[in-house]
Design a protein around this nucleic acid. Structure first.
Lengths: 223, 223
DNA sequence: GTCTATAATAAGATAGAC
DNA sequence: GTCTATCTTATTATAGAC
């Protein structure tokens, strides 16, 4: 039977163990972070549950305990990375600017965002390789994405009324034009850089490309 | 010992058997075609050698006999699909046209090409997920790709001299601008269509997008 | 060159104790 | 909630006969 000292000793030993080990939220979050790294690096089929476990402080068992399957874990990774970009998009506030400035700001923002978030670009590529089957099952992702389109549409209509933009440009179309360039620069940089011997990560090249896309979008919009 | 009739019978039996089974070139080619389908559908890690075998008239053993490993088979698939596009690019003959028409023709060609060759788009996406490690090992692919750039550069310099194009536009940059749009439309169609509820395969949408990219490239080039 | 059978191992998922 | 050990099936690759 335990005496008082033993109980005290247990309590003291317990505290650090709990904070280090029995911390559900931290454990779950650690797994998710490790999963992001693994899926982004290896793709959906290429990712290994064992490797994810190795990237964490915990064990493989915990992955199944919290996420049930590799597929579900992937689905959460996808939502997390989509959520990140859509969240920052809200800080844009295009309506405070004149139409021309607003569009320029949007292009710059999109460019920088893709440039800085390679993980996002990679997971979207991976998801498309898998025919977008997981985004289709996430209403969250679709809901999150309507903001940009709405803001862009408002700006286009404003510019149109003021006679600065050409008539009837659709927001989705312009979004496609902007995104494609910003995305491709990052998603295809490995093959592009190798084949055409250009370093897309170089700062001068980046600046040149940024003004090219701004310029071509602005000119496209002019009446 | 065989008599004359037996030999004749053997010869008659041999012919169809050979054409059906012992036909190295056809066997190898059949495997490569099956491999294209499998890798394009499932990605590098997702592809299964068993599935490739099932797609052929032959057995798994033959895959290893001819290609040694899954990796080498993938490398050949990559070269094949790259070769296809680069080959058709040679039929462009931009130098026969006036600079403006030449660029317009190049954009249309690039647009249609990507639209028609989903396999190519997918394999390039897959290769980028794997950090372009296989293109880096293929001097063939790089060599094949220099043509477009050369043709584009000639056209740009011509237009520049004639005062129709702005000064000092780099061929790689413009190629990036054109390719990114044409590629992304196809590579990301699953997530894009789902999230923004637009059918990128629709003919009207396609026409609208084609004229948008032509327009924006032409305007970008004008002095 | 081609086939069937099989080895060797990797990988997703679970059992059961604590 | 967490850990170690293990089950089961998939998967790459090869052996060996014809």
């Amino acid at each position: 039977m335990k005496n008082v000292d033993d109980t005290l000793a247990d309590a003291l030993a317990e505290a650090p163990r709990k904070s280090r080990k029995n911390n559900p939220e931290k454990t779950r979050d650690g797994i998710l972070q490790a999963a992001v790294a693994e899926f982004v690096a290896q793709g959906l089929s290429g990712a290994r549950v064992d490797s994810i476990a190795e990237r964490t402080q915990t064990s493989k068992r915990m992955i199944y305990y919290y996420f049930n399957s590799k597929e579900q874990l992937y689905a959460e990774v996808l939502e997390k990375l989509y959520g990140d970009i859509r969240h920052t998009e809200r800080s844009l506030t295009l309506d405070a600017l004149a139409p021309m400035e607003a569009i320029q700001r949007l292009v710059e923002f999109t460019f920088d965002h893709h440039d800085r978030n390679v993980d996002y670009v990679r997971i979207v590529s991976i998801e498309n390789i898998h025919n977008g089957e997981n985004v289709k099952q996430s209403p969250t992702i679709r809901a999150l994405s309507q903001n940009v389109l709405q803001a862009l549409d408002d700006t286009l209509r404003r510019g149109e009324r003021e006679g600065m933009f050409r008539q009837a440009v659709k927001a989705v179309d312009l979004h496609l034009l902007i995104s494609s360039f910003c995305f491709y620069r990052v998603s295809n940089r490995h093959t592009f850089s190798e084949i055409f011997q250009t370093d897309l990560a170089d700062e001068d090249v980046k600046t040149r490309h940024k003004s090219m896309i701004i310029d071509s979008v602005m000119r496209y919009l002019s009446p």
